[in-house]
């Protein structure tokens, strides 16, 4: 449905003098959808985000929001709001002033301003912090305020540039959950940039996997996990065993490898290491095709020990042509 599309990028190209950049980017983001741009650093995901926000001019192509072109507008005229990696709260302003800045520019009357700020602080669980300065807050708190600053302005599209990468692991996953909840409750359209595939899997409605300035695959997290389009995507998302045969490469997820003691039909190998990772166990097997990892449920594992001969079989696997090179 055409009216569903909030943000559209058509044939966008942005090249830097160094030759890096992005080429032929086509992307449609539906209203209320959270789309993640995922890829290693330098793949161009931030470039795309910055062209949407207006900090970079694209060389070719169009960017549309609600069907209207915005690529000629300066950042302040675009209906987008961006949350930066380093929060970028203005250190000389209090939390209140940071939040009020955008509202003042929009000539929102003082009473209305105060009410909205109170409301948004409640929403991001930061009530009563109005008078604090950013340097008095922790990283997680600063990022909450930064997100609040953007949400206050009710942007058509919210852009997040690796917003949680400066936070420690525990707060990161907590913020992730909260952001997802906010996004669903408020029905905001979000473009999220990350290099962390786990984060992308946890958050997104759809993931855009990028490599060297190109989009490689766009799909839901489950589909990308199940059917990675090539070896690059397969290696980037989740754990994957690659078995090189003469004419092709076979890719198997560790959870699709089953392990049996003793000799039998299948790939022969010896157990090299057994590692208990909570509810499942990772078994590393030295096989005739190299190292293969298997995830097996915790209870069935008692009998395996390093040096034991085992036979492996695959319940599910993917095949890729031989000539492709995997870039990690």
């Amino acid at each position: 449905m055409a009216e569903d599309i909030k943000l559209e990028i058509r044939n966008m190209t942005k090249k830097y003098k160094t030759g890096d950049g992005v080429e032929n980017i086509n992307l449609k983001v539906r209203k209320g959808e959270l789309v993640t741009l995922l890829g290693p650093s330098g793949c161009g995901k931030t470039t795309i985000l910055r062209t949407i926000a207006g900090f970079l001019k694209c060389d070719e192509g169009e960017i549309l929001i609600d069907g209207k072109r915005i690529d000629h507008l300066p950042p302040e005229k675009r209906p987008t709001a961006m949350v930066f990696q380093n929060y970028n709260l203005w250190p000389h302003m209090t939390v209140y002033e940071n939040l009020a800045f955008g509202l003042k520019l929009r000539k929102v009357p003082k009473q209305e301003r105060d009410r909205q700020i109170k409301e948004i602080l409640e929403l991001v669980k930061m009530s009563g912090m109005e008078k604090k300065y950013p340097s008095q807050l922790s990283g997680g708190q600063q990022q909450r305020i930064a997100i609040a600053r953007c949400l206050l302005l009710k942007p058509d599209v919210l852009l997040l540039d690796e917003p949680f990468s400066a936070l420690d692991a525990k707060i990161r996953s907590q913020m992730r959950e909260e952001l997802r909840k906010l996004q669903i409750d408020l029905k905001i359209t979000v473009v999220f940039v990350t290099h962390d595939q786990e984060e992308a899997m946890a958050l997104s409605d759809r993931i855009v996997v990028m490599e060297k300035g190109h989009i490689v695959q766009v799909d839901t997290p489950a589909n990308i996990y199940e059917n990675p389009i090539n070896k690059y995507v397969a290696s980037f998302i989740g754990e994957m065993n690659f078995i090189e045969l003469e004419d092709k490469t076979i890719a198997v997820r560790p959870e699709h490898v089953s392990v049996k003691s003793g000799e039998g039909n299948g790939i022969k190998g010896t157990v090299r290491a057994v590692m208990i990772l909570g509810h499942y166990v990772e078994i590393t097997v030295d096989s005739e095709y190299g190292i293969i990892k298997a995830y097996v449920p915790n209870e069935s594992v008692v009998s395996y020990y390093p040096g034991e001969s085992v036979t492996l079989s695959f319940s599910k696997f993917l095949e890729y042509p031989k000539d492709e090179k995997v870039v990690m």
């Binding site: 926000a53 207006g54 900090f55 300066p74 950042p75 302040e76 005229k77 987008t80 709001a81 961006m82 930066f84 380093n86 970028n88 709260l89 203005w90 250190p91 000389h92 800045f101 955008g102 520019l105 929009r106 600053r149 953007c150 302005l153």
Partner: peptide, 27 residues
């Protein structure tokens, strides 16, 4: 003054002149 401080101001709707006087100059 980090560029991104200015970008954040542009992003919430401040033009270049206001960004200079509200963000860059005080910092």
């Amino acid at each position: 003054v980090p560029r991104q401080m200015e970008e954040a101001a542009r992003d919430v709707g401040a033009g270049p002149v206001r960004t200079f006087f509200s963000i860059t100059l005080p910092l």
